[in-house]
């Protein structure tokens, strides 16, 4: 497991005190030379009810599904701890078909670069 993103156990915030069912959504984490890619299943979550927040070093993903039929809301939460290799200002997120995609670009010094070797 890479050390540049590590999960943090979450503690319930006061905002969750009201009736809400907390769920840990399943998450995939991928990496290439340029970025980390986090995918999370968040069915029923719309952009208005979704927050992706970086409060260095924490990346917090939280989506709320308002209750239907007088049941409690559903709150999906995952929190990860990022190391300093990510360029926080360039993080991008989008949600399609209930799947959230968070792109975390690596900052320049941490990108993999091929150095061309020239002969004498």
């Amino acid at each position: 497991m890479t050390q540049n993103i590590v999960e943090t156990p979450k503690t319930s915030g006061p905002e969750l005190a009201q009736r809400a069912q907390e769920i840990m959504p399943p998450v995939d984490i991928y990496e290439n030379d340029h970025e980390l890619l986090v995918l999370a299943d968040l069915p029923r979550v719309t952009t208005e009810n979704l927050t992706v927040e970086v409060n260095h070093p924490e990346l917090k993903i939280q989506g709320r599904v308002p209750s239907a039929n007088h049941q409690s809301d559903i709150v999906y939460t995952r929190i990860f701890r990022l190391d300093s290799s990510m360029d926080v200002a360039k993080i991008e997120a989008k949600i399609t078909e209930g799947v959230l995609e968070v792109h975390l670009p690596k900052s320049e010094p941490y990108r993999v670069r091929k150095i061309e070797v020239t002969g004498a």
Binding site: M1, P26, V27, D28, I29, Y30, E31, L36, L39
Partner: peptide, 16 residues
């Protein structure tokens, strides 16, 4: 059907 995005290495795969 999920497959890892091309060119990426998987670190965590909980979605199936």
């Amino acid at each position: 059907t999920l497959s890892p995005p091309e060119g990426y290495t998987a670190h965590r795969r909980e979605r199936s």
